[in-house]
Design a protein around this nucleic acid. Structure first.
Lengths: 233, 233
DNA sequence: CAGTGGTCTAGACCACAAG
DNA sequence: TTGTGGTCTAGACCACTGG
């Protein structure tokens, strides 16, 4: 060991971050390999590996076998953002959550939505619109299509008492999903729901969830004026 | 070993995910401890630990010492989204990146921005507005405040040739940042930049970056109409 | 108190890719 | 070909926390 004693991977990680932030290791630099750092820090190579892997996952290091580990030239910082169930997001603010089912029908979705769900042909879907409220104020408007052919039991669900999202979370496991964030203009219907001027700029989240190759549901949530989604890096 | 042989942590992870998705382990269930799973899978406990830790990070498992590991009741799925440098985002689409500096001045920021940057008093900041373009089309409009007291060399920077973001990435390391996403209405100036109707709904990203306790910069990026930010879970 | 996950260690072998 | 990170193992000790 030639340097200070670092006993756990968090300490090693902190030292590595410090060297990057202070430009002791500059962007593009090749840093010592795991064995050398383990020797310098007086710990096992496994510990160094754990620390470096963690820093690399955050985007600050590029690691490649044989080529070694370099400080990232263009650090694409990765923000992790939690996609909460709306009810919990609202309750976390100590507000009362409620929701109202506005419409429920069975029909084939518009072509662009059918395409996103990779449905073949004019397949019937369950279509529902509902409003989520915090302390009685409109919080988010939901427009959802559910692929009823692959969700057993969906017909019996009572979406007046449980929100579609919560029912699906409990009954239709998914393997992965796509999410898109954007800004949309409030049309007449939406602006009425929020008691906001027509043409207001509203934050939108669209999500398609899948069970292996099959789309379970497509949902667009449009949030009240002024809504902000936060995260940190 | 009582079950099938799983030789690496990815296989163990896949098996664990399968058991969650198929409801073999149901939400709220306590699953076997690491030693039991290691025995069942015929691998070391370390390997099981690596797999379970990874699943827990995605939000599907709750792990607590002594209490054991449970399938999450309300899985708050975590989406990791990459915050790219704009130039790279544009070049990744095989478009030509360019940018124009629209204004540059030195003055104290508005109070709400000064508060976000935790500046004390009416401290002068470098304020610049610029436009990022893809193939000559307006892509995003940037409004940035830089705390010049803690960024050495900022005076010499030539923001006509290098974008402020790239200069800062190269010269002002940060330890962390806050990000907020929202929707904003295009005012007259912004709508002119995008040749879009006034009142268009535009996607906005605001970011403050810090070096320990000191704000380096606050920036608001407003994107062209129709911009979407994607991720997966 | 005792059971669980969290971590460290030393050694080993392997997969990948640069030269 | 060979140096690098990626991973597994067995065993050990520790930290936290539920009962």
């Amino acid at each position: 060991m030639t340097g200070q004693q670092l006993n756990n991977w968090q300490d090693v990680q902190a030292e590595v971050l410090k060297r990057i932030q202070t430009r002791f290791w500059k962007p593009g630099d090749l840093i010592p390999n795991e064995a050398e750092l383990a020797n310098e820090f007086g710990c096992a190579r496994t510990t160094v590996n754990r620390a470096l892997r963690s820093v690399a996952e955050s985007g600050l290091l590029d690691r490649r076998r044989k080529a070694g580990t370099r400080v990232a030239l263009n650090p694409v910082r990765k923000a992790t953002l939690a996609i909460p169930i709306l009810r919990r997001e609202i309750e976390a603010k100590n507000q009362l959550y409620s929701h109202a089912l506005l419409a429920l029908e069975t029909k084939p979705p518009p072509v662009e939505i059918g395409a996103r769900m990779k449905l073949d042909g004019n397949q019937d879907c369950l279509h529902l619109t509902s409003l989520h409220m915090a302390d009685g104020q409109a919080y988010a408007s939901e427009d959802r299509w559910i692929n009823q052919t692959i969700v057993p039991g969906i017909i019996e669900a009572d979406f007046a008492t449980i929100s579609a999202n919560e029912w699906l979370v409990a009954n239709a496991p998914f393997t992965h999903g796509d999410i898109a964030f954007s800004a949309v203009r409030a049309d007449r219907e939406i602006s009425n729901q929020f008691s906001a001027p027509e043409g207001s700029a509203l934050f939108s989240i669209e999500r398609t969830t899948w069970n292996h190759g099959n789309a379970i549901t497509f949902v667009q949530m449009i949030f009240h004026p002024g809504y902000r989604m936060h995260t940190t890096i």
